[in-house]
Design a protein around this nucleic acid. Structure first.
Length: 216
DNA sequence: ACCCAGGAATTGT
DNA sequence: ACAATTCATGGG
């Protein structure tokens, strides 16, 4: 078994996922695109997230022509920082519009450069991401994992929570497990468990579990 | 019509 | 500190 999968091969649940999805990859996306995309992703389903991103590209991206085919690139941060809330609302962003404008402005004003975070530690990069409006723990962990090469990041969304509660119930003792929505306390409990249990490549374990057991 | 969504910020206790 | 409540809206 390859190195990474052998490192997360801790039990039969994840082993079954690895067997079926062997070869699964994690993206190394552009950090800016990744960040805005996951701010859009909060409290939305995947078809809608696709729509929001497509709207952003069509309204604010530059046109790219490949022969007869035309696509729109992802908007630059300066463009989104200068966009009006009204224009952003036209992209069906809802309450996310103000988060995207604020975060874009923060990054334009160069409080820090996202691309430098690849050379920053997991802990410090996470702290910095959490300073941005619209970025909580889950969004920060997704950006760390899918663009900043922090493979120990372990994002906990509603699906991962269900999967952990179903398949790893005996591994943690968390009060108020019946709560419908994620609380900071619950997030920390699931996130700590994932990183400690699966180790340095916990993010791969998260993705194997998500891809195998998310059902809908 | 009803319920949910790859949550985070804000407000109340 | 920590627990409710609010937030906009498309998709199933």
């Amino acid at each position: 078994m390859p190195y990474i999968t052998s490192m997360i091969n801790r039990d039969e649940t994840v082993r079954a996922a690895i067997r079926r999805l062997h070869g699964l990859r994690i993206m190394r996306q552009d950090p800016w695109e990744c960040l805005i995309s996951f701010i859009c992703a909060t409290f939305a389903n995947i078809p809608r997230i696709k729509g929001m991103i497509q709207n952003l590209c069509q309204h604010f991206g530059s046109k790219i022509t490949h022969g007869a085919i035309q696509v729109y690139g992802f908007p630059r941060k300066e463009v989104l920082a200068d966009a009006s809330i009204h224009e952003l609302l036209d992209c069906n962003l809802g309450y996310r519009a103000k988060y995207i404008k604020k975060t874009s402005q923060s990054l334009v004003n160069s409080e820090f450069n996202l691309d430098t975070l690849r050379k920053t530690s997991y802990e410090e990069a996470r702290e910095l991401l959490l300073c941005l409006t619209g970025v909580g723990e889950k969004v920060a962990d997704c950006v760390l994992l899918f663009s900043l090469e922090k493979l120990e990041a372990f994002p906990v969304d509603i699906w991962i929570r269900r999967i952990l509660q179903t398949h790893y119930r005996g591994h943690f003792n968390i009060p108020n497990l019946e709560q419908r929505y994620m609380t900071p306390r619950l997030y920390k409990a699931f996130n700590d468990f994932g990183r400690q249990y699966f180790g340095r490549y916990a993010g791969y374990a998260q993705e194997y579990l998500y891809a195998e057991y998310r059902s809908s």
